[in-house]
Design a protein around this nucleic acid. Structure first.
Length: 323
DNA sequence: TGCCAGGCAGATG
DNA sequence: CATCTGCATGGC
């Protein structure tokens, strides 16, 4: 394993974690698409937060003398080839929501056997707060794709059109085996993708998503501040704006509302969630989408966002015997 | 070969 | 409303 762990990072920090964080669960729960781990289950991940390339892992905190918070027993260990000044550290804290303890929301969940099973099956799962554009783009790519295929598309777009993150010579030194786990490029900006032809996007395997992504890039690029400030609107207003974009319907808009802006009312109702809700609460009978919408709003609001993530991940890892 | 994958848009009753 | 279809691509 030591051949894979890169020990010559020029910068290392420990960021205190409020509550519990499990990276293996969180970074593999279908909310983000650009993290890799050399060894599944090792807890070590390579990726980036916007333009900051990092290796992250979670370590226990023994001596809390400098951290007089009672709910801090872990820290996020962040290593990077670039200098992590205060501003960049704040970006990392925000992305991983380290100042927020998910237990403060979980304790309000309605009493429900299925939900409890889901929550207990993936401790440390937490919602990230992602940069809006790459979150939006990622989920535009997600239509009828498996998560590993979405990850592949994101990687191809980044390598072909994204800005290079190779900033220091030490990053170039790494062993060839570890090389493929390093993040080389960030996700391309909307301005850059707006310049790429639809054919160019199809060449990367986007298929029918190509014109959608291009249109989204053009819209976002031509309204420079609108997307990034959607968090100042109400949830319905933000969702309505997102759904103006071709290729963005209710589900994708909810993903962005939740994963990029933290609207807890957002409840991405994809095919998985439809199956889960029918199985848990409707004896697997056919139920219209409309009714499922009404059901989750009545039963789960205003904690739908987190509840959805627990149910989704539990189902995807086989916790529910749905077949 | 056939089926399915964190959907959406357009058309039909 | 509710349902149906085409849309690309890749893996099993």
């Amino acid at each position: 394993m030591s051949t894979f762990s890169k020990t010559n990072f020029s910068c290392s920090h420990l960021l205190p974690v409020n509550g519990c964080l499990n990276l293996d669960v969180t970074l593999n729960s279908g909310q983000c698409f650009d993290w890799r781990t050399p060894f599944p289950g090792s807890g070590v991940w390579h990726g980036r937060v916007d333009l900051i390339p990092v290796q992250v892992s979670v370590v226990p905190v023994q001596d809390a003398s400098s951290l007089n918070e009672s709910n801090i027993s872990q820290a996020l260990k962040v290593e990077s080839d670039i200098l992590l000044n205060d501003e960049l550290q704040n970006q990392l804290v925000h992305y991983f929501q380290l100042n927020f303890d998910p237990a403060s929301i979980i304790q309000h969940f309605p009493a429900d056997p299925g939900l409890e099973l889901a929550v207990n099956s993936c401790p440390g799962l937490r919602l990230l707060r992602q940069p809006p554009w790459e979150c939006l783009a990622g989920f535009i790519l997600s239509s009828t794709k498996r998560i590993d295929q979405i990850q592949e598309l994101v990687k191809r777009l980044s390598v072909h059109y994204g800005p290079s993150l190779r900033l220091s010579s030490s990053a170039e030194v790494s062993a060839s085996k570890a090389e493929r786990w390093l993040i080389s490029h960030a996700f391309p900006s909307p301005e850059r993708l707006a310049e790429v032809s639809e054919a160019g996007l199809r060449d990367l395997g986007l298929g029918f998503r190509a014109p959608y992504l291009k249109a989204a890039a053009e819209i976002v690029a031509s309204h420079p501040d609108t997307l990034s400030s959607l968090g100042e609107l109400s949830y319905p207003e933000a969702k309505e704006w997102l759904m103006q974009i071709p290729g963005v319907g209710s589900k994708i808009a909810d993903c962005v509302a939740l994963f990029a802006f933290g609207f807890q009312e957002a409840f991405p109702l994809d095919v998985w969630m439809q199956k889960i809700l029918r199985w848990l609460y409707f004896k697997n009978r056919k139920v219209s989408l409309k009714r499922l919408e009404q059901f989750h709003k009545k039963k789960f609001a205003p904690w739908g966002g987190y509840i959805q993530q627990f149910l989704f991940h539990a189902a995807r890892t086989g916790v529910f015997p749905m077949k």
